[in-house]
């Protein structure tokens, strides 16, 4: 299926919170159509603020975030058809897995039959079918995140914004969720922005990494490894991790060696 996916462009984005805190200072970069860009940086560097502005949940004090269509013109479609996965799964505790996954379609007025069919489809693809009648309280933290990721797919989004979806899980579950994030990105084909504080996660998933520090872009790093050849134990992978790690350390002024 060929779609006219938008690219996502941040142009001179600044955000000053009441009280004068500069959360973002003149942030500019763009995420190519269908690409996966990871934004990495220490806590409090403005990563989540950036995502919230892209999602329309917060406003930039100055600068702009634009969804650019293939014709080079600003397109409203990206904003209309974006999905967000937050660091907490944000599932309704009284609804089972199917009803939670179907919720975005329900809120858009899609008929019951259609939304349940679509929800079942993404649940089965995510391997969640055995858990589909369970409530969120009956799932592990990792499973809840997988449900939240499946929910982002249900609307077939053009743009995916993932806000540290793996921040609350153990290392092993993180690796499983990374696989799921890659699958979700590849299935949706969406232009994707992933906020993370894990360097290895960023290198494993992204084709572009934005290293941030205290509200501004410190470095833009392109991951040279092809997606299929990303082996967490290979020398090439570990060298990429080291490069990003050094960049991050320079940004944060931390001595790592």
């Amino acid at each position: 299926m060929i779609r006219d996916l938008p690219s996502l462009a941040f142009q001179g984005v600044s955000r000053i919170f009441p009280g004068g805190v500069h959360a973002l200072k003149d942030v500019s970069f763009s995420i190519p159509a269908g690409g996966l860009t990871a934004v990495i940086g220490p806590s409090g560097c403005g990563k989540t603020t950036l995502l919230r502005i892209a999602a329309g949940l917060d406003r930039a004090t100055s600068g702009s975030v634009n969804f650019i269509g293939p014709d080079g013109k600003t397109s409203a479609r990206g904003r209309e058809n974006l999905s967000v996965c937050f660091q907490d799964a944000r599932l309704l505790p009284w609804r089972n897995v199917v009803a939670n996954v179907a919720l975005p379609l329900e809120l858009s007025g899609v008929s019951r039959v259609e939304r349940l069919a679509r929800a079942n489809q993404v649940i089965t693809a995510a391997g969640l079918a055995p858990a589909q009648t369970r409530l969120p309280s009956q799932l592990s933290g990792g499973m809840r995140m997988r449900v939240a990721l499946a929910r982002t797919l249900v609307t077939s989004p053009d743009v995916l914004l993932l806000d540290e979806p793996c921040s609350a899980v153990d290392e092993f579950t993180r690796m499983q969720l990374d696989e799921e994030i890659r699958r979700v990105w590849q299935v949706s084909g969406a232009t994707t922005m992933l906020i993370t504080h894990s360097v290895s996660e960023a290198v494993w998933l992204a084709d572009q990494i934005i290293v941030m520090n205290v509200g501004s872009v410190h470095e833009i790093h392109r991951v040279a490894l092809p997606q299929q050849a990303r082996d967490r134990t290979s020398t090439a992978f570990l060298l990429e991790v080291e490069t990003v790690m050094r960049s991050l350390a320079r940004a944060a002024g931390v001595v790592i060696a």
Partner: peptide, 8 residues
């Protein structure tokens, strides 16, 4: 916020 994002 989730409901707001989906235009409820």
């Amino acid at each position: 916020e989730f409901f707001m994002l989906h235009g409820a």
